[in-house]
């Protein structure tokens, strides 16, 4: 790693930490092997109905991207001056006036201990796990090693926080066994707490019924297609329920 990148990463990390401590947003972390971006945007859209929300853009999901997304800066490119200017901007963001109520970050892991590094930055109020596949598995050796990364994430959830887990992914559900945290589940399976059924689609999108704890069954229509979009919708519903009851807009 170049000296420039190392220095930028160090400064950025510190500024992002400062920003989170100063503004105290409700922090949602979306992680898992696939579908992170769709879930992230669905949560942003849903929470945007009640809160001001910052959603990490594009694939800002690793050691540089996550802090950049927290303090709302673009890449400084390959030059010292470019990065100096964006770091100043980041600092202004961190120590400035009121920022967004909710911060939605995306965490991706491609090597062992990636998650531990990202978790030095923040403790999430809510974690959404999408699935656990063999993507990038060669760096981990086994799925168990990779699963350990997600267990680390679940263990760092704040005391009154929530884990939102994909019930249709057996490996994700198994993660919870060793972790003491309040959880809810989403999926198409009959035992998911946030569940969709009677799914139909036509050229205008996808319709389904949503079952959620303590709520009447609701009909939903989204202009997107595919299971991934339904998962995103359900995860967003679960996060919204938690956010509105555990974090008051100031």
């Amino acid at each position: 790693m170049s000296f420039l990148k190392r220095s930028v990463q160090y400064c950025l990390f510190a500024i992002a930490k400062l920003s989170l401590a100063h503004h105290e947003p409700y922090v949602v972390v979306v992680s898992g092997s696939t579908n992170r971006q769709t879930v992230k945007e669905a949560i942003g859209k849903k929470l945007g109905e009640a809160f001001t929300v910052r959603v990490s853009p594009k694939n800002f999901n690793a050691e540089l991207g996550v802090p950049m997304s927290i303090v709302d800066i673009p890449s400084g490119g390959g030059s010292f001056l470019g990065w100096f200017s964006v770091l100043i901007r980041a600092l202004r963001y961190a120590i400035g006036g009121k920022r967004e109520d909710v911060c939605i970050a995306e965490f991706a892991v491609s090597r062992p201990r990636d998650m531990r590094y990202l978790l030095r930055l923040l403790r999430p109020d809510c974690v959404v796990l999408t699935d656990l596949t063999s993507e990038y598995l060669s760096a981990f050796g086994t799925l168990e090693t990779k699963a350990k990364e997600y267990e680390d994430l679940l263990m760092r959830i704040k005391a009154n926080g929530l884990a939102v887990l994909n019930q249709d992914d057996a490996r994700i559900c198994a993660l919870h066994a060793g972790v003491s945290v309040v959880k809810t589940t989403y999926g198409l399976a009959g035992d998911a707490l946030y569940r969709a059924n009677h799914i139909t689609s036509n050229e205008h999108g996808t319709s389904f019924y949503v079952h959620a704890p303590g709520l009447p069954v609701q009909h939903a229509h989204i202009i997107s297609f595919g299971k991934s979009a339904i998962y995103a919708y359900l995860a967003a519903e679960a996060v919204a329920t938690h956010a509105t009851t555990h974090w008051k807009k100031t």
Binding site: T38, G205, I223, S224, F225, G226, K227, S228, A229
Partner: peptide
């Protein structure tokens, strides 16, 4: 344009 990344 709304297309499912998994199947479309």
């Amino acid at each position: 344009m709304h297309y499912d990344w998994e199947t479309e």
